[in-house]
Amino acid sequence: MPGDSGPPAEFDSLFRNDTPGATQQMPRIDASAPHPPGRPQPPHQAHQPPPPYGRQAPPAHGAHAAQAPHGAHGAPPPHGAHGYGDYDDYDEPGRRRSKVPLVAAVVVGCAVVGLGAGALLSGGDEKPAVDKAGAASPVAPAPGPSAPASSEPAPDPVKDQAVELDKLLADSNDSRDAVIRSVENIKKCEQLDKAASDLREAAGQRRELVNRLRGIKIDKLPDHTELSASLTKAWQASAKADDHYAAWADQVKKPKNCKGGKARNTGSTAQAAVASGEATGAKREAARLWNGIAETYGLTKRQPTQL
């Protein structure tokens, strides 16, 4: 700068070799000298950046400097101060700098890539759960194919009740033929004792049907209340009619009540007719209600006279 008298003496001493303890530059390397075998030829550069702190800079091209004697500063020259500095892969002649960190980085990178590829190839399978003790819990197996559905239909409580009532109705017609035959014999004044016995037995069967009806459940059937009342009334009325016909048979045994092989009607005959009419009306209503249920569930339909 203007006004300066020149560089300070300390700066000038850096380039002199006559100052005791001054730092001296390394000897210049002859680029034409034969290069040691096995070592790469350092490139000739017109200008090189300064070495990092702690490394001795390579000598300037063409600069004259004397090599400092060993121990000039009380210690051997710094490591790597053999003319190549940080711009070479060598620290000492014939000895390559350690590349362990680079190899380790490559190995780690390969391991990471391998793990990633394995995860992709595995299809993202879930890892087994680990409990607090550190033991891997077994992964639940994938559910197998579901069992085929049963071909049997689910139970139908309505149909079950209908089937039970159908069995009861099938027994209600057992005494019908016996009743018809007994009444015809009374009219002809024939087999009066047997007719009376068969009629009373039929009346007992009618009452038994009423008891059995009370013992089964039909509460899920359509119009079950009306159906139960109609059947009960029909069978009770039929039982009364059978009893009155049996009493008529006993009366016809008297000669005055049987003239010319023909029985005379009595008060029992009239009562039997009234009860029989009540039974017929109730049977018609019961048959109507039952046949609708029978058609729904494929059961036997019945006429009023079959009840």
Rank of each mutant, 00 (worst) to 15 (best):
A270R: 04
G267R: 11
L209G: 06
A60H: 05
S238M: 08
P155T: 07
G114C: 15
H35S: 15
A273M: 11
P42H: 00
L192Q: 04
A111H: 02
E285I: 04
V100Y: 09
D193K: 07
G260D: 14
G260P: 06
H64F: 13
S182Q: 02
R176Q: 08
N185M: 07
K262I: 01
D166T: 01
S197C: 05
P128A: 04
K301G: 09
A203I: 05
A60F: 05
L169H: 00
D166I: 00
R95K: 15
M1P: 14
Q271D: 15
I216K: 01
D131E: 15
Q25M: 12
G292F: 12
W290Y: 00
G123T: 09
A66T: 06
Q303D: 09
D89M: 14
V179Q: 03
N211I: 09
P8F: 10
K220I: 00
G118H: 07
S228W: 00
P50E: 13
Y87T: 02
K256I: 13
S268K: 06
P36Y: 01
P37F: 04
A104W: 06
A154T: 10
P155D: 11
P145R: 05
E126I: 03
P42M: 11
L213P: 02
A241N: 03
P153I: 04
A294M: 06
D156E: 06
V163I: 14
I218E: 03
S238D: 12
Q205F: 08
K167Q: 09
A170N: 05
P155G: 13
K259Q: 10
E208I: 04
E10P: 10
P43M: 12
S182T: 01
P52C: 04
G116A: 14
A140P: 13
D243H: 02
I216E: 01
V113W: 04
N265G: 01
